[in-house]
Amino acid sequence: MTGVPFMAIEGPIGIGKTSLAKKLSVHYDVHLLREIVEENPFLGKFYEDIDEWSFQTEMFFLCNRFKQLEDIEKKYLKENKAVIADYHISKNMIFAKRTLQADKIDKYEQIYHILTDDMPVPNMMIYLHASLDTILDRIHKRGRDIEQNIKPSYLAQLAQDYEDYMNEFEILHPDIPVIRINGDEIDFVQNQNDLEAIISLVDKNMNKMNTQKMK
Rank of each mutant, 00 (worst) to 15 (best):
M1N: 08
V4D: 09
V4N: 11
F6W: 13
F6S: 06
E10R: 05
E10M: 07
E10I: 12
E10V: 12
P12R: 01
I13H: 07
I15F: 02
I15M: 07
I15W: 01
A21E: 02
L24T: 01
S25Q: 02
S25A: 14
V26N: 10
H27W: 07
Y28T: 03
D29Y: 03
H31D: 03
L32F: 01
R34W: 08
E35F: 11
V37S: 01
E38F: 08
E39N: 12
E39G: 02
N40T: 08
P41F: 12
P41D: 11
K45V: 04
E48N: 15
D51E: 14
E52S: 14
W53V: 09
S54D: 14
F55T: 12
F55R: 07
F61I: 02
F61S: 02
R65M: 07
R65G: 05
K67Q: 14
L69W: 15
D71W: 08
I72R: 02
E73C: 11
K74D: 10
K75H: 08
Y76G: 06
E79V: 01
E79L: 10
K81Q: 15
K81A: 08
A82L: 03
V83A: 04
V83N: 03
A85N: 05
A85K: 06
D86N: 11
Y87A: 11
Y87H: 15
K91P: 07
M93T: 01
M93N: 00
F95R: 06
R98P: 04
L100H: 13
Q101K: 15
A102W: 14
D103H: 14
I105Q: 00
K107Q: 14
K107F: 14
I111D: 05
Y112N: 00
H113W: 04
D117F: 00
D117N: 00
D117Q: 00
M119Y: 10
M119W: 05
P120N: 04
P120D: 02
V121H: 04
P122N: 01
M125V: 14
Y127G: 06
L128D: 11
H129C: 05
A130Y: 08
S131I: 06
L132H: 04
T134I: 04
L136S: 07
R138N: 15
R138I: 13
I139P: 10
I139Y: 06
K141C: 04
R144G: 00
D145G: 00
Q148W: 00
K151Y: 06
P152V: 04
L155N: 01
A159W: 02
E163G: 06
E163R: 11
Y165D: 09
N167W: 06
E168M: 13
I171E: 04
H173N: 15
H173P: 01
P174Q: 08
P174I: 10
D175N: 10
D175H: 11
I179L: 09
I181Q: 07
N182M: 03
G183E: 12
G183A: 12
D187V: 02
D187T: 05
D187R: 03
F188Y: 05
F188L: 00
V189M: 13
V189Q: 13
Q190E: 14
Q190I: 10
N191G: 09
Q192H: 01
N193E: 04
E196M: 08
A197K: 13
I198M: 04
S200L: 06
S200A: 09
S200R: 06
V202L: 03
V202P: 07
K204R: 13
N205V: 03
M206G: 03
N207G: 11
K208A: 14
Q212R: 14
K213N: 07
M214W: 09
M214A: 13
K215P: 03
K215L: 09
